[in-house]
């Protein structure tokens, strides 16, 4: 994964996530859109055979970096919770 910054203003962040695809981008988008401070979050894969999605994020208030950090934190917590609960219901400790 490589990040390339394309645009950075007070409320907007546009960057390329090189080497990733829908798996990661939609996960991030879904978490960002839950945040009421986020005005718009989305991504575009300009060419289907080149894994260089362009992610766009615009916020109503606060900084876009903060919204990203919060989304990543929330996803991490969610994934860990999922892993622990799955292991529990499987009948073993994680």
């Amino acid at each position: 994964m490589e990040l390339k910054l394309l645009k950075h203003t007070d409320n907007t962040l546009v960057f390329e996530i090189r080497g990733e695809g829908h798996t990661f981008c939609q996960l991030l988008q879904g978490a960002l859109l839950k945040n009421p401070a986020v005005e718009m979050a989305g991504y575009d894969i300009p060419h289907p055979q080149v894994a260089h999605p362009v992610f766009t994020l615009r916020v109503r208030e606060g900084r876009p970096e903060e919204a990203l950090k919060a989304a990543v934190e929330e996803l991490r917590k969610q994934l860990e919770e999922f892993r622990v609960k799955f292991a529990e219901s499987w009948g073993r400790s994680c």
């Binding site: 990661f24 991490r76 892993r83 799955f86």
Partner: peptide, 11 residues
């Protein structure tokens, strides 16, 4: 789940 967690940390 671990792979996704790893992607997030890297990000």
């Amino acid at each position: 789940a671990k792979i996704l967690e790893k992607k997030l940390s890297e990000f």
